[in-house]
């Protein structure tokens, strides 16, 4: 589904974030992207939803060269990709329901679709009885569930999660991981950037490790660090 061919990204300030990346992510995969800060993990995901353009090489999404897309096509690319952030990025003045509905609203969905789809997703993430609350009145784990609900409400084919449990305690993190696994089982491809060693070790998924912009390890069912 996603292919990187010889992708290099050099930022205008001269920093080489990615160096000749070749990577193939298949539909339905659950992939952990690990590595030290500044290794290029976030840059790699930004190339997929065209927040950044590669300096060299190609990124293909479902066979299409992302860099070659017209700028007016980009919103439609992003509607097929759900995004979950470490800091949740919820709108504080909107309720849980409105935050999730917002993702449908920006696509021009009808009121009927919104009224049908939002409760469905809220039920899936276990927040059906908190729909009317503001994010500030929720726990961190619950806020991230809202973030996940918003990311999947458009039925994306790909979910990119950038350190989704970075601000949460281990117990809450495990609950969220179960949710991610459930979403993955329903067919959504997931790319997750994380530093949570225990989670990566326990989940036994594909692990891609980056260091200084290069892939240093790509292992099916691997752990957070190389087994010596």
């Amino acid at each position: 589904m996603i292919r990187f061919y010889g992708v290099t990204k050099v930022y205008p300030n001269g920093v080489k974030a990615l160096d000749n990346i070749n990577l193939h992510i298949k539909k339905g995969e659950f992939l952990f992207l690990v590595g030290p800060s500044g290794a290029g993990k976030s840059t790699l995901t930004r190339l997929i939803f065209r927040e950044e353009l590669p300096t060299r090489g190609q990124v293909l999404f479902n066979g299409r060269n992302v860099a070659r897309m017209r700028s007016r096509e980009v919103p439609y690319l992003r509607r097929r990709i759900g995004m979950v952030f470490q800091d949740f990025r919820l709108l504080p003045q909107k309720t849980v329901f409105e935050n999730v509905a917002f993702a449908l609203e920006v696509t021009g969905a009808s009121s009927r679709d919104i009224k049908r789809r939002v409760p469905e997703v809220l039920k899936l993430v276990g927040l059906e009885d908190k729909a009317g609350m503001l994010p500030a009145h929720l726990s961190g784990g619950e806020q991230q569930r809202v973030g996940i609900a918003r990311a999947i409400v458009n039925n994306p084919v790909l979910l990119i999660a950038d350190e989704p449990t970075g601000n949460l305690d281990p117990e809450t993190s495990w609950g969220l991981m179960e949710l991610f696994q459930q979403i993955n089982k329903a067919g959504t491809t997931i790319i997750m950037i994380t530093h949570a060693r225990e989670i990566v070790d326990a989940m036994k998924k594909r692990v891609v490790a980056l260091e200084s912009g290069r892939i240093v390890r790509d292992e099916e069912g691997g752990g957070y660090s190389r087994e010596d």
């Binding site: 995004m83 709108l91 920006v106 696509t107 021009g108 458009n154």
Partner: peptide
Amino acid sequence: RREIGIMKYLGATNWF
């Protein structure tokens, strides 16, 4: 601007 950033991630068109 925060809201605009989120809108862009959610796939809002420029005109939206």
